[in-house]
């Protein structure tokens, strides 16, 4: 079953483009990454899903139901962590969480305690006394307290220190094992790399690529660096070689293609050192951004 189904979704703000003709399907149980630079349309897409804004054309379905017509109903099963957290400043954390919980038809007190313990959140402080990172923790507890079937995260890690981020990711993995689908938007690729099964890349309001993260990383590019005297660029000017750079006695490039061709080329030179590694997603995606 598709938890998220987006068809030809387009949004213009007045005359300026938000997103254009976006199509996406996210399956139940997936951790789906939504990658793109700032301003590419990630938040717009998410806000359309949540009914905060309305599409110019196209439609979005959540759990098979129209995201606008059945908005309040489908949101019962959605946990949302926005990129910037704003709550009622004068409320205490626990009151805010209980208030949030009062909108769901279940008892969330136990889950509130559990997650706040994991995230080391002090429930008795007032919202306006909290630091940016602590507000984010409130957001995490608020987004997860009703054990949602779909978790939507918009740039979720800002403000969290690495230790907290790890705890949060573990929490997400647990939620996912429990059966929750996760839709994770980010411009930081390493976080996506750690969590996601599939990713969509959005650029200037349009989806450029939807790929399996394994396919992306394993079957495509190799990042190769060769060190040696008398290296010449010409040796490696082959089909499938990109970003070929020579710096003093070191040559670096990316390679995509028949691995035997490149080993042949490598064996023809007098090398002091060779490294062949998987490129980071960042490096893979560079050419989508350019």
């Amino acid at each position: 079953m598709n938890v998220i189904e987006i068809k030809n979704l387009t949004k213009y703000y007045g005359g300026s483009l938000g997103i254009n003709d976006v199509n996406l399907e996210v399956k139940e149980g997936e951790i789906f990454g939504f990658i793109g630079p700032n301003g590419a349309g990630k938040s717009t897409t998410i806000r359309l899903l949540l009914g905060l804004i309305y599409p110019t054309s196209g439609e979005a379905k959540l759990f098979g139901k129209d995201a606008i017509e059945f908005g309040p109903e489908v949101r019962k099963d959605i946990g949302y962590l926005p990129s910037e957290i704003f709550y009622y400043d004068k409320m205490k954390v626990i009151d805010l969480l209980n208030y949030s919980a009062s909108f769901y038809d279940k008892d969330c007190t136990k889950r509130i305690k559990e997650i706040s313990n994991i995230m080391e959140l002090d429930l008795n402080r007032r919202i306006d006394d909290l630091s940016y990172g602590n507000k984010k923790k409130v957001g995490i507890v608020q987004g997860l307290l009703h054990e949602p079937k779909l978790i939507i995260l918009d740039e979720p890690t800002g403000g969290l220190d690495p230790l907290m981020q790890q705890k949060f990711f573990n929490l997400l993995k647990e939620e996912n094992e429990r059966g929750a689908t996760i839709f994770f938007s980010s411009h930081i690729l390493s976080e996506v790399q750690e969590l996601c099964n599939r990713v969509a890349i959005i650029k200037e309001g349009s989806i450029v690529e939807v790929e399996d993260i394994q396919t992306l990383r394993e079957n495509n590019y190799k990042k190769i660096a060769v060190v040696g005297d008398d290296l010449s660029k010409e040796t490696f000017e082959l089909d499938g070689v990109t970003e070929l750079i020579q710096e003093e006695d070191e040559l670096t490039f990316f390679y995509k293609g028949d691995i035997n061709l490149i080993t042949k080329a490598l064996s023809s030179i007098d090398a002091k050192d060779i490294t062949i590694e998987e490129p980071t997603l960042e490096e893979i995606f560079m050419h989508y951004y350019e």
């Binding site: 806000r47 908005g71 949101r75 957290i85 909108f103 769901y104 608020q142």
Partner: peptide, 17 residues
């Protein structure tokens, strides 16, 4: 104004209510 709209209106309740 207080930017709490993104919180309140993503709860499972309609704007009308």
């Amino acid at each position: 104004r207080d930017r709490t709209a993104e919180y309140l209106f993503t709860l499972p309740i309609s704007r009308r209510r």
